[in-house]
């Protein structure tokens, strides 16, 4: 008798919980894990931190930033692709990193296709900058000198196989010049090398140009249009070079995350991007605000994979 009562009770509890689950299953219903794959204080971290509070407002749940640092992001991304695809684990992702690492490393622990883009919310176009005392006043001076003295100009930048590295190679090709690229570990380490005049120029990001505008002269910016925070700086395109390059940053989910959850997260990202305070804060620092949703992002990545393959083959690195 009591056994029967117990089973009835159990079944009803199960039924109720099942029912309530389907009714209450409003995503999200618990805190979100936001993996940051780069050192605290860098671009990826600062912008994820800037998103954190507004995202919490939009989603109505806590967003917990978790650091999984190393290997130029690969350590974090290799964990992301193995995480549960329930929408509660997301990570910041960077282009071109997630494309270049699987191309040049034997096993970075993830494949580009495994990383499911949710939203690309900002980008930092490359800039070419020189020390304020440098003899190069314009991009023309720079190119002319490089033509006359092949390989003498040293260009510092953040890392190997980064947007700065590839960008230097692309610009060398486009302008038909030869410069020596010197990789530093992060933009933060490249800047002192320029300020101390240990390198002739930097291929770095817009953010660095804004931060150090008193100490460096920006010759051109590798964006389609001029960047709001540096309206006086011409684009390479304006100066006659088909060269657009930079780092894109966004949020990604594990493979097989349901599309409706991805869409919901993308909406939240969009809502944050549209907050004037957030937008101004990032633009003042030199970031370009972008609204690239999941499908568009996937297309962009697919396009860039082919594009980078071509460049790497051209310069003999692949």
């Amino acid at each position: 008798m009591s056994k029967r009562l117990f089973s009835i009770l159990l079944v009803s509890v199960l039924l109720i919980s099942l029912f309530s689950f389907s009714v209450l299953a409003e995503f999200p219903e618990k805190p979100l894990n936001y993996i940051v794959c780069f050192n605290p204080g860098g671009e990826s971290d600062i912008t994820a931190r800037a998103q954190q509070k507004p995202l919490e407002e939009v989603l109505g749940e806590d967003v917990v930033v978790q650091y999984k640092i190393g290997g130029g992001g690969a350590v974090g991304w290799s964990e992301l692709v193995n995480a549960k695809p329930d929408g509660y684990t997301v990570a910041g992702f960077n282009l071109p990193h997630i494309i270049l690492q699987p191309l040049v490393r034997e096993d970075p622990g993830y494949a580009t296709e495994d990383i499911k883009p949710v939203f690309i919310f900002q980008a930092t176009p490359n800039i070419l900058a020189v020390h304020k005392d440098s003899p190069f006043e314009t991009l023309d001076d720079f190119v002319t000198y490089a033509e006359e003295n092949p390989g003498v100009i040293t260009v510092g930048g953040s890392g190997s196989y980064s947007a700065n590295h590839l960008g230097t190679l692309e610009f060398n090709q486009e302008a038909e010049i030869k410069t020596t690229y010197i990789p530093f570990t992060g933009s933060g380490e490249a800047v002192p090398a320029l300020l101390g005049q240990h390198v002739s120029a930097l291929m770095t990001y817009t953010t660095m140009g804004i931060r150090h505008s008193d100490e460096m002269r920006v010759l051109a910016v590798a964006a389609d249009e001029r960047v709001p925070a540096m309206p006086d700086i011409p684009t390479f395109k304006e100066l006659g070079y088909e060269y657009v390059e930079g780092a894109y940053r966004g949020m990604a989910a594990p493979p097989d995350t349901p599309d409706d959850l991805v869409a919901e997260l993308a909406d939240a990202n969009l809502a944050v991007n549209e907050m004037p305070e957030f937008k101004n804060q990032l633009e003042d620092m030199g970031f370009q605000i972008l609204n690239i949703g999941p499908e568009e992002a996937e297309e962009l990545i697919a396009d860039r994979v082919e594009y980078y393959k071509e460049i790497l083959v051209d310069v003999g690195l692949l």
Binding site: I69, G70, G71, G72, A74, V75, S78, V104, R105, E106, D107, P108, G109, Y110, G159, S160, Y161, P183, T185
Partner: peptide, 19 residues
Amino acid sequence: IAPIGGDVRFTMGIPAFQG
């Protein structure tokens, strides 16, 4: 990962060792 050049060294196939 080599700080310069980005080569993968002695990671023994373990992704975490890239860091």
